[in-house]
Simulated scan of single mutants.
Amino acid sequence: MTQRRPLIAANWKMNGSVELVEQASASLNSLAVSAAEILICPPVIFLSQFPKSDKYKLGGQNVSSERSGAFTGEISADMLRAAGAEYVIIGHSERRALFAETDAVVLAKTKQAISAKLTPIVCFGETLIERQQEKTMQVLAQHLDAVYAAHPELLRHSVIAYEPVWAIGTGETATPEQAQQVHAFIRSHLSQYDKEAALQVRIIYGGSVNAENCAALFAQPDIDGGLVGGASLKPAEFAAICLSAQD
């Protein structure tokens, strides 16, 4: 059976402070976690505030689809890498909904990240209406095809995040069984591009993950960790989630 190291990623979104950086780093540095990989994605200005540690890695929440140039306010993949990031979140549902990011933009950003030796965490998910209409798998297949069908080589360098839009920041969470069903579908669908890569790629769940529901989610065979939002802003709770991932 393929062994995939769990990844627990903190997405701070537009939150944080120097004090939270200090609290989070101290909390994670005190953990005895080896089985799971821990990642913190703070606002980009805080990347340099984190002390170097072998207990966690750092990532960005977004990246430009361009390498450089006259793009005021954008951050390039090379800049993220220089700031200490090893990962970057791409295509989060908030970016798609609030900033009109299309699958084409997600593909361009994924290419930029990989070219800079960043690991993209590429996000996909369905809305509540799409789930109610039983279109979850259809929607996910379309999004996955847009990124990987013509560029299967990108899959070997990616992490996939399934984040049902209806569960982002709402307190609602897919049941472990619902999440596993979708994760298994994603892995199966990806196998048409590259069977070996589909077995190896980590598919993490994002959607109101917290200390109460994480163990049941992480116990599912195709759920390889979590993309944690609100709970990641509470160092003690995030630490508990990280510990749960290695049980």
Rank of each mutant, 00 (worst) to 15 (best):
S25N: 05
E153M: 08
E86M: 10
S191K: 08
L107R: 11
D222E: 04
A82S: 12
E19R: 10
G73N: 03
K135T: 13
A100M: 09
E101M: 13
G225Y: 04
N29A: 04
Q3Y: 08
E196G: 04
I8V: 11
A184N: 01
L154M: 12
G16P: 07
N29R: 05
E37V: 04
L98K: 11
G16C: 05
G225P: 02
T72L: 03
T110G: 14
I186D: 08
I89A: 12
R96I: 14
F99G: 08
L199E: 04
I38V: 15
V21N: 07
R96F: 12
S25E: 02
F218P: 00
P51C: 13
I114M: 15
T72F: 03
G229F: 15
V106N: 11
A9T: 10
E212W: 02
S244E: 10
N29I: 06
C242H: 09
F185S: 05
E66C: 00
V209C: 04
V159D: 14
V182N: 04
G69D: 02
G229R: 15
N29S: 00
A215T: 06
A146T: 13
Q23V: 02
W12R: 02
G206A: 06
Q23Y: 06
A211E: 09
P176W: 06
E126M: 12
R187D: 05
V182I: 01
S115E: 15
